[in-house]
Design a protein around this nucleic acid. Structure first.
Lengths: 141, 141
DNA sequence: CAGCATCCTTTGCGATACTG
DNA sequence: CAGTATCGCAAAGGATGCTG
């Protein structure tokens, strides 16, 4: 059976090379991987969710996330800001007041995750059962 | 302005609690987060992509991924198998021959990532520009 | 209040070596 | 060929304390 052009996500695929070199280039260069890493980090998606609902202040986010460290929230927000997913507005008052608002791009990104989230939710049971079965097989014999 | 039920992904949201306790519970219990973590780990998505194309043997995958360690490929495959995303078939020959095939569930999962991948690809430039602008602001002043 | 820098623990993952 | 176990390094991330 002859092999042909892979039906892989094209992003980091190098169609000019033999398919032994498919790679998205797991770490470097690959924008898709980087975005995926961002999304899957501990807080990004939750921040997106909260900000998609409405603008929040820093401490407001921190209280709602409950468990996030000051440091990681700051880091997460900075990276999202850097990528153009949110706008950081500093009100020059004392004490300072900083507000975070999603950009349209940020809303798009969050919106894209919905199908995935729904899928994960609706397949929780299925997956749990698969695991139980697997573990039984592993332990049993 | 009164706050109301959050328009957050509902999965790990606890609507029975005040919204200070939104949390998906970043680590434990949350199936969505776990799946997201899986997807974003270094190799899972690439494995899904290859297997969505066709059944592969272990070493075949390893060669194609080029860069994956034996250990991590085995781990990745095991977890996908445990979650019911793929089937591992052992042919009782010498030397052994083991084949990995996606289940319908696994195909669904991979399919779900396509919109995201497309989005990430088509916004690479936009994001890069946002970064350049951000870094300029940061350095400049 | 917001956000850096410092320190220290935990996790991820590659390298390697051994088994059926 | 496929899989497991042990080791060690490097990155992620939490705690805490200092600054405007």
């Amino acid at each position: 059976m002859e092999e042909r052009t892979l039906e892989l996500p094209t992003h980091c695929q190098r169609t000019d090379l033999p398919d032994s070199v498919v790679q998205w280039d797991s770490r470097e260069d690959c924008e898709v991987r980087k975005q995926l890493d961002r999304l899957a980090d501990k807080w990004t998606l939750q921040v997106l969710a909260l900000l998609d609902h409405r603008t929040h202040r820093f401490n407001e986010l921190q209280r709602r996330l409950e468990g996030v460290s000051h440091r990681m929230l700051a880091t997460t927000l900075r990276q999202l800001e850097r990528d153009g997913m949110l706008i950081r507005t500093v009100h020059p008052t004392v004490p300072p007041k900083v507000e975070y608002t999603l950009t349209p791009l940020g809303r798009q990104l969050h919106g894209l995750m919905r199908p995935f989230v729904d899928w994960a939710e609706s397949n929780t049971r299925t997956i749990a059962m698969a695991r139980t079965a697997f573990d039984a097989r592993a332990t049993g014999q």
